Simulated scan of single mutants.
Amino acid sequence: MPGTISTEQALIYTMVTMSGVEGKINAIELAEIRQLVLTLPVFRNFDENRLLMVAQEAGEILQDSEGLEAILGLISRALAPRLRETAYALAVEVAASDLAVGKEELRFLAMLRDALKLDKLVTAALERSAIARFQRD
C-alpha cells in the first residue's frame, strides 16, 4: 500500500470509494468520475490515461479488512486543507449522479467529513447543491 499519494490520486480514491461503498461500482457513477477528471481544473495536470490504474489501486486497498480506514487516512494526508471541501464535493457528485443515495453512501460521507475535519454546515451546503443540480422536473 502506498504511503503517500498525489492530490489527484486522493480525489480519485475519494470518488472510487464513494462509488464502490455499496459493494459494486455503478456504470453511471464511473462515467461521472471520468467526466469530472476530464473537466475539472484540479485534474488539469493529471494524465487521464492513468485513471483506470488509480481506480484499481483504490479498489485493491479497499479489499483489505482495514481498507476503508486506510483510504481515508491516505486521502486526508494527501489533501491540502483548501482541497478538502473539493474532495467532499466530488464524493457528493458521484453519489448523486445515479439519483439514488443509499445508507452506505451516507455513512461514507459522514466518515469522510470527519476524516477531513469539515464543518457540518459546509458539507450540508455541498450536499444541497448537488441535490439542486441533479433535480428532475
Rank of each mutant, 00 (worst) to 15 (best):
residue 110 A to C: 00
residue 46 F to V: 00
residue 81 P to D: 06
residue 78 A to W: 03
residue 80 A to R: 10
residue 81 P to A: 10
residue 16 V to E: 14
residue 29 E to P: 15
residue 122 V to Q: 07
residue 128 R to T: 08
residue 131 I to F: 06
residue 54 V to T: 11
residue 12 I to T: 11
residue 69 E to F: 03
residue 34 R to C: 04
residue 117 K to W: 06
residue 111 M to R: 13
residue 98 D to V: 05
residue 93 E to C: 09
residue 21 V to F: 06
residue 1 M to F: 08
residue 81 P to N: 11
residue 41 P to G: 10
residue 9 Q to G: 00
residue 12 I to Y: 15
residue 48 E to P: 12
residue 118 L to E: 07
residue 112 L to F: 04
residue 85 E to H: 09
residue 11 L to P: 00
residue 16 V to W: 09
residue 127 E to N: 09
residue 2 P to H: 11
residue 65 S to D: 06
residue 19 S to N: 14
residue 45 N to M: 07
residue 50 R to D: 09
residue 110 A to S: 15
residue 65 S to K: 08
residue 101 V to G: 02
residue 129 S to H: 06
residue 137 D to Y: 15
residue 8 E to H: 15
residue 126 L to C: 11
residue 57 E to K: 04
residue 79 L to W: 00
residue 118 L to N: 04
residue 13 Y to H: 14
residue 42 V to Q: 09
residue 54 V to I: 05
residue 40 L to E: 15
residue 11 L to S: 05
residue 102 G to L: 01
residue 21 V to K: 03
residue 80 A to M: 07
residue 49 N to K: 15
residue 58 A to C: 10
residue 65 S to A: 07
residue 30 L to K: 10
residue 70 A to F: 04
residue 96 A to L: 01
residue 101 V to P: 01
residue 45 N to W: 11
residue 51 L to F: 15
residue 92 V to T: 13
residue 44 R to M: 08
residue 40 L to K: 13
residue 130 A to M: 10
residue 74 L to C: 01
residue 123 T to D: 00
residue 98 D to R: 04
residue 4 T to H: 07
residue 57 E to F: 02
residue 9 Q to N: 04
residue 110 A to F: 04
residue 23 G to A: 13
residue 63 Q to E: 10
residue 96 A to M: 05
residue 87 A to L: 06
residue 57 E to Q: 08
residue 74 L to Q: 00
residue 42 V to G: 04
residue 9 Q to S: 06
residue 38 L to T: 13
residue 62 L to R: 11
residue 28 I to C: 09
residue 102 G to A: 10
residue 32 E to V: 01
residue 32 E to D: 15
residue 65 S to L: 08
residue 68 L to K: 07
residue 27 A to L: 11
residue 106 L to I: 00
residue 105 E to K: 03
residue 39 T to R: 12
residue 34 R to S: 12
residue 74 L to S: 01
residue 74 L to A: 07
residue 52 L to S: 06
residue 118 L to Q: 12
residue 37 V to W: 14
residue 122 V to I: 14
residue 4 T to S: 14
residue 60 E to V: 00
residue 100 A to S: 08
residue 91 A to C: 03
residue 24 K to F: 13
residue 82 R to S: 14
residue 64 D to C: 03
residue 97 S to T: 05
residue 53 M to E: 13
residue 49 N to Q: 14
residue 15 M to N: 15
residue 107 R to E: 12
residue 69 E to M: 04
residue 105 E to L: 07
residue 7 T to A: 15
residue 102 G to R: 12
residue 50 R to N: 03
residue 37 V to H: 11
residue 13 Y to P: 06
residue 51 L to K: 08
residue 47 D to M: 07
residue 18 M to R: 10
residue 11 L to G: 04
residue 74 L to Y: 02
residue 21 V to P: 05
residue 111 M to S: 10
residue 26 N to P: 09
residue 124 A to F: 06
residue 13 Y to M: 02
residue 14 T to E: 04
residue 54 V to N: 05
residue 134 F to N: 15
residue 18 M to W: 14
residue 115 A to R: 08
residue 84 R to I: 03
residue 91 A to P: 02
residue 21 V to Q: 08
residue 57 E to M: 13
residue 34 R to L: 13
residue 64 D to R: 02
residue 60 E to I: 00
residue 98 D to M: 08
